[in-house]
């Protein structure tokens, strides 16, 4: 069985229904984001004061908000922002973390300097770091991605650094060096291919935590501008109506929890797939 075959990757999901559920929720979110304009029953921006704060009913499944906007439509539209922030943060973390980690491990002198800087960043809680950056840069979607991404760049760098330190002493890397391979060859042919699997797992967790981070920033009014629907913004806008219209908080809150939770499930399943110690769980010999 090829390591890269579809069955190989699907097996941990089939073995555990809860992981399959996570994958399902994730796919549903991606579909919702992709086809938002066609899926949403109403225009997420349309205001209709005559039906403001309607509880969930047959016409408006998730109810309406203080401006009479359809909560379901806004929640579906928000999936776009969620995926944008999530993939942006993952991209940022990988694009910065992988080169810093790999080069630090291969060039110890450079590594001493870079990794100490990473340690300094790691000393701050990531949300605090993000808040500080937003205050300096000003709130916008791009800045939210940068601010959250910086926090996860550090963990990604640490993981890549540790793995590369181990990889560079592998016999096959030495064999390659003994045949005259340069640094670029070692990185391209030996180190990066062996980083793909662990980074895939890391990416899924970063994506999940980016959701929570983005929701927190939005809630504090420091993320996406308030006119753009996002789950965090929806929470922030409706918190004054928590007793009169709890559905306004329940549905976006549930979306945040569901995506973050399902991403964690998927990450767990990928990790089990790639860590040989978990092979037994999948009914394969070690």
């Amino acid at each position: 069985m090829s390591r890269d075959g579809a069955i190989f990757w699907l097996k941990p999901f089939i073995a555990r229904p809860i992981a399959l559920m996570g994958l399902g929720i994730l796919l549903a979110t991606v579909l919702a984001a992709t086809f938002a304009p066609w899926l949403a029953p109403y225009d997420p921006y349309a205001i209709d004061p005559s039906i403001r704060l309607t509880p969930p009913n047959a016409l408006h499944w998730f109810g309406t908000d203080q401006f009479g906007r359809d909560t379901l439509s806004r929640a579906i539209q928000s999936a776009r922002m969620a995926l944008l922030i999530g993939s942006g943060v993952v991209m940022f973390a990988l694009v910065t973390g992988v080169p810093i980690g790999v080069l630090s491990a291969l060039f110890p002198r450079l590594g001493h300097v870079l990794m100490r800087m990473v340690d300094v960043l790691m000393a701050f809680p990531s949300l605090l770091l993000a808040l500080g950056l937003i205050v300096v840069l000003g709130p916008s979607v791009v800045n939210a991605i940068l601010a959250i991404g910086l926090g996860y760049m550090t963990t990604t760098t640490r993981i890549v650094y540790g793995l590369t330190l181990r990889l560079r002493t592998e016999t096959y890397v030495e064999a390659s060096r003994s045949m005259g391979a340069g640094t670029a060859w070692l990185i391209g042919k030996h180190i990066l291919p062996n980083l793909v699997s662990p980074l895939l797992v890391q990416a899924s967790f970063v994506f999940a935590f980016a959701q929570l981070g983005a929701a927190s920033l939005d809630f504090l009014g420091l993320g996406a501008p308030p006119e753009i629907p996002s789950w965090g913004n929806m929470l922030a806008e409706s918190r004054t109506f928590i007793t009169r219209a709890p559905w306004l908080l329940f549905f976006p809150g549930m979306m945040i929890v569901a995506t973050a939770f399902s991403l964690n499930l998927v990450g767990d399943a990928l990790r089990d797939r790639l860590d040989p110690r978990f092979r037994q769980l999948l009914g394969e010999k070690g």
Partner: peptide
């Protein structure tokens, strides 16, 4: 050229 001791470690598992 060199032949290495551990045949399990001397080939890159991803190549």
């Amino acid at each position: 050229r060199m032949v290495f001791q551990d045949p399990y470690a001397s080939l890159n598992p991803r190549r």
